[in-house]
Design a protein around this nucleic acid. Structure first.
Lengths: 322, 322
DNA sequence: CTGTTAGCGCATTCAG
DNA sequence: CTGAATGCGCTAACAG
């Protein structure tokens, strides 16, 4: 009888009609628990992330939207499951107890205990981000190397020769948060490649921290004519500091915000030139990766690194003449 | 044997020890599907919201954090389940199919088809927000009446006599989005009560819309000395428009952003005075409401309307002398 | 206090 | 192509 619904075997037209009629008659609903129990599969994918932190800026929304849609198309439910970073065991138990078939892990750090727990229990997972070790792990990530290279190139092409990079917090660097580490390294490499005088700093995720940091940079290196920022909240402080000093954007100083969105860029005046975080693409790709692992099918060959496209605003321009 | 875990009946110390030993020995995990099936209860609460829209500003995060914690303390899992607003049926089926025991519905409009579907199916739910009809429905909401009254009082006390209110979009008003409607009405009532010249406008959720709107207000009523805003994204445009006209905040014009957070206020210079959206409180209260409905216990008498507290910034001050 | 047992509602065998 | 029978791994009701 259940075959009529699942299509797992050929069904006669008449039989199907009979079943359908009965279903409608009784207001029948398939019971998810019974299905999960019998099929040993919940058809739920859990997106776990450390207690939905502030300042998500819509990138998470975009990601979740795409991931959810991709999962649905494949007959799965995508649910967001808030967990503190310390609750490794709970994340693992989600799958061990059959609440979910697989896990998407966000905000992965280079050495992430949650990943260790998942590996140890053979739980299917895909990382949004990357641990240092990648062997046999499924992941998708932003191509920070490429993004920072493009950012430096963009500014170097405009004639800037002294560029500062405002990164995420020192704490994130110390705890090995991949984006922070990779972006710093890539910024340096790109600066060297283009013969740029580079300053890089970390900043807490607050406007005030960004303002103080920027102010310090301008004191130390007044010849700085461009800022690359990868810290949405601190970037508000960056522009505040420039305004404090009567520096005009982009005439005196250029600002390029990376791994964010044009929507956030539009909050500034003039609107910031940004390099857009590819939330949608990451969402889709990560679910594809996870499903490939779950269904044992070969993961369709597709790039795991996704790039941030430049979205022109009005905050970058030619380096001023000295 | 399961009694040892659930504590549903008294257990001898020795028996318990024996069970525990066996559990550890075999790496036993309770199967969630089997538990749900046998107990007819999933211990999952679904927080459904229209595909995690942009501009969440952290209030959703704060809400989810508190809701999640409250649920956990009561032995439930809180999961966030993205649904488009059109998918009434799917939301309802979550519970009918036993995927979740109850639903928290966010972004409720005055006439919300999702709520109709839930009611028709006898699904336990709590609204974050309110439909026009409230009979027999469980809800918690921000006290917009009080918030707007407090906002107007704050500015009137500072001597402002002409105040403009920048609300959510016209579309949200037309479709009967509760916050938009209630805030508008409350703003008017408060203005009348204080003898204030009031202008109220809607604005799309974009900085550009906010800027144009503000500009139009200043053209039409140049005597306006204060803005109340309840539109996080548009507020960026409000301050841009003021700067366009060389109006200083708060010397020439005061800005009070309501139903947002001091963190968002800190993105401005000077930092905005805000009335903070009580995300934490709403999260906790809403889960309490839902659990009361689920467990049939009398809902602890507690206010369903939660107020927004004033968080002083530096964007409101005495009305300028004319 | 403890051991045993009958379903929960499906998917998936197995016969027909 | 179809109907009937077996468990999935638990909870809760039953006896002891």
């Amino acid at each position: 009888m259940s075959y009529a619904l699942s299509g797992a075997r050929p069904i006669g037209t008449e039989t199907r009609a009979r079943v359908m009629a009965a279903i409608k008659e009784l207001g029948f609903e398939r019971n998810a628990a019974a299905r999960s129990l019998a099929a040993r599969r919940s058809h739920v994918l859990a997106l776990v992330l450390p207690t939905v932190a502030g300042g998500l800026s819509g990138t998470l929304g975009e990601f979740a939207q795409a991931a959810s849609q991709t999962a649905r198309d494949a007959g799965y439910h995508l649910v967001i499951w808030p967990f503190d970073r310390e609750e490794h065991a709970e994340v693992r138990d989600l799958v061990r107890q059959g609440q979910a078939d697989g896990v998407l892990v966000m905000e992965v750090s280079l050495h992430d205990e949650r990943i260790d727990a998942l590996l140890a229990s053979q739980v299917p997972f895909t990382m949004i981000g990357r641990t240092a070790e990648l062997d046999g792990r499924s992941w998708v990530d932003i191509d920070f190397e490429r993004t920072l290279t493009d950012a430096v190139d963009h500014l170097a092409d405009l004639g800037h020769t002294t560029i500062a990079f405002v990164n995420h917090s020192q704490h994130s660097l110390d705890t090995g948060y991949g984006p922070t580490v990779r972006a710093r390294d890539a910024f340096h490499a790109a600066a060297v490649a283009r013969g740029i005088h580079a300053t890089d700093v970390t900043s807490d995720e607050s406007p005030l921290a960004g303002r103080l940091t920027t102010s310090a940079i301008l004191d130390e290196r007044p010849e700085t004519t461009a800022f690359v920022t990868m810290n949405e909240t601190a970037t508000f402080g960056v522009t505040q500091a420039l305004r404090d000093r009567r520096l005009r954007v982009p005439d005196d100083v250029s600002v390029l915000a990376v791994v964010t969105s044009p929507e956030v860029g539009a909050m500034y005046h003039p609107p910031l030139t940004t390099m857009r975080a590819p939330g949608h693409e990451l969402g889709r790709r990560s679910v594809e990766e996870l499903l490939a692992a779950l269904e044992g099918t070969a993961p369709r060959e597709a790039p795991r690194l996704v790039t941030c496209a430049l979205s022109p605003g009005a905050s970058t321009g030619p380096a001023p003449r000295r």
